[in-house]
Amino acid sequence: MGEPATKDVLSLDELEVAGQLRTGRKHILSILVENKPGVLTRIAGLFARRGFNIDTLAVGPTADEKISRITLTLDGAKHPIDQVTKQLHKLVNVIKIRDLEPQDTLSRELALFKISADDSGRAEVMQICEIFRAKIVDVSRRSVVVEVTGTCDKVDAFERLVRPFGLVEMGRTGEIAIARGRGET
């Protein structure tokens, strides 16, 4: 196609639509917001209004006390991500949004699992914990509580393995993420 700065002929047939709508993969959005009341409601409301599902959401302070970081993940197979980020940008309290590239991103999530583990299963559960470098943080006669950190995939895998022992309950924080290397997220 003709470079815009040149005099080349531009055939309309060559024009392609800008921006891809559905990416088909998981997205981690890192959103810096002003630390003001109601900001989370605005963000959540925007998703709700368009019928978008937020998979995970984590909110916390940043190095600057006036700014909080919201990390949220959502499925690009279901939702047009670029439209969402544009809408988010429109919120006055949203300062910056990064759609983090998975390969350039460090992401972690913390999870607590309460697993039934009587005498027969306990050793096996502890073995799994070791492989996953999970910590046993509480033990009772019939169950253990385990703390796992890692990527979302790792936590998923851990869950799959311990489920057969009897998963009493679990809690997950949702991922937080920052970019690898020197640059700011």
């Binding site: 309309l12 024009l15 392609e16 639509v17 800008a18 921006g19 709508l21 670029d82 439209q83 544009k86 809408q87 940008h89 429109k90």
Partner: peptide
């Protein structure tokens, strides 16, 4: 048609109709 879309609001671009030249 192909579309040129001039708008001050980036969220309007390709919202309903894909823009070839936003």
């Amino acid at each position: 048609a192909k579309f040129i879309h001039i708008d001050i609001d980036p969220a309007e671009i390709s919202k309903n109709v894909p823009a070839h030249i936003p």
